[in-house]
């Protein structure tokens, strides 16, 4: 009875789904955005270690500081990094006094003695303030676009570090024939919908002045800020890898000892005649 019922139900599902499989398909219109879209360029990063494997490797402190400089002088006009606190900048190699000075350049919301909203200078304990109070304010100021917070950007996109670098260096005036681009947008094949509202933020070599002698090129800016945003998204990256190496070394030894014990335990059973 069970088997007859099963057979009936089985036939029902099988015929049904196969009917769907042989049903004619409407030709899907070719999705031009999909064809134009490019995967991020591949770059070797110091924080991915030898072979870009992601097992060893640490951030280059100088590069993080340069990336922060690019963020501060370029990106921060529109994009916040609201999940990062000023105190976190100690990870970049800044001293306590430097962090205090950086924080003091920003204003955060406060309440004055009369209960009225006001602002005060940020302290190291504060987070980087939002650029726009809310989404509506952002869209009003940005021609309808909403510049996203960048704190988690490299984890919120596939292959994030490469993505940020590719996007920043991927603008092109060479719009392919047949592709429509509104005048308020820019052509960037690394962006998921190709037309991006953000104007090329890094437009000329020398736009940001580096004090450490690193070549001041657009390519270098893009790399530095991509690494900086990797840190903002995953500030515990170095700690994580160090812990991982120790944990796995421990486990390998533990498992090795366990295997020897296992061999000993089973020796009576598996011994030859």
């Amino acid at each position: 009875m069970i088997r007859l019922g099963a057979l009936a139900v089985g036939l029902l599902f099988v015929i049904n789904v196969l009917w769907g499989a042989i049903a004619p398909r409407e030709d899907a219109a070719p999705d031009m955005a999909k064809q134009l879209h490019k995967h991020p360029k591949h770059v070797e990063w110091t924080h991915n270690g030898p072979g870009n494997l992601g097992i060893f490797g640490t951030f280059d402190r100088g590069q993080l500081q340069r990336g922060f400089q690019v963020y501060k002088e370029v990106c921060s006009a529109c994009h916040s990094i609201n999940r990062v606190a000023f105190r976190n900048l100690a990870d970049l190699g800044f001293s306590e006094a430097q962090i205090k000075a950086i924080a003091a350049e920003y204003e955060v919301a406060a309440i004055d003695a009369n209960g009225e909203p006001t602002t005060r200078k940020a302290t190291p304990a504060d987070k980087f303030p939002l650029v726009y109070a809310n989404e509506a304010a952002a869209r009003a100021a940005q021609n309808g676009a909403n510049p996203p917070d960048l704190s988690l950007m490299t984890k919120a996109r596939p292959d994030g570090t490469n993505y940020v670098y590719s996007l920043l260096t991927g603008y092109s005036d060479d719009v392919p024939k047949g592709w429509t681009k509104p005048d308020t947008s820019y052509y960037n094949p690394y962006f998921h919908s190709i037309n991006i509202a953000m104007p090329p933020p890094l437009s000329a070599d020398g736009q940001v002045t580096y004090s450490d002698g690193t070549p001041a090129t657009v390519d270098q800016y893009a790399k530095d800020v991509a690494v900086f945003l990797t840190w903002t998204a995953e500030p515990k990256l170095e700690n994580r890898k160090e812990t991982g190496v120790a944990a796995i070394l421990f486990l390998i030894i533990m498992t090795g000892l366990g295997y020897l014990s296992y061999r000993k335990v089973w020796a009576d059973i598996k011994k030859p005649a």
């Binding site: 812990t243 991982g244 190496v245 486990l251 498992t255 366990g258 295997y259 296992y262």
Partner: peptide, 17 residues
């Protein structure tokens, strides 16, 4: 115990890397 050790090694590889 051996199986657990191997499992934890693979698990750690994902958690940490």
């Amino acid at each position: 115990f051996v199986g657990l050790g191997i499992y934890l090694i693979v698990f750690s590889a994902f958690v940490f890397f």
